[in-house]
């Protein structure tokens, strides 16, 4: 299991488009990617729930990746976050 934390820097937060792309990135791997903010957790592959979390600029999220390709998946998610959010 790989755990990482990230604080959203994009002024618009995780809005529709970045949520869609994040979801897509997570789906490309077999591992399960969970995103947690203030006690609530969603699976990153679930776009509508992810959008429903209303993650905003300045929020810190915890990402947990678990599965056979967890290290590659975690790297990809990390790269996506620092590039887009």
């Amino acid at each position: 299991m790989v755990t990482l934390q990230y604080t959203i820097k994009d002024p618009a937060g995780i809005h529709a488009r970045p949520a869609g792309l994040l979801s897509k990135t997570a789906k490309a791997f077999r591992s399960e990617v969970l995103i947690e903010k203030d006690g609530s957790t969603v699976n990153a592959s679930k776009l509508m729930m992810l959008m429903g979390m209303g993650i905003r600029c300045g929020d810190t999220i915890t990402i947990t990746v678990q599965g056979e390709d967890e290290s590659e998946a975690a790297e990809a998610i990390k790269a996506f976050l620092s590039e887009h959010l």
């Binding site: 488009r17 897509k24 699976n43 679930k46």
Partner: peptide, 16 residues
Amino acid sequence: AQIFEIHKMMLDDEDY
């Protein structure tokens, strides 16, 4: 145009 890309992703949503 991005809105329609998002529509497609929403259509594909697992929970939905």
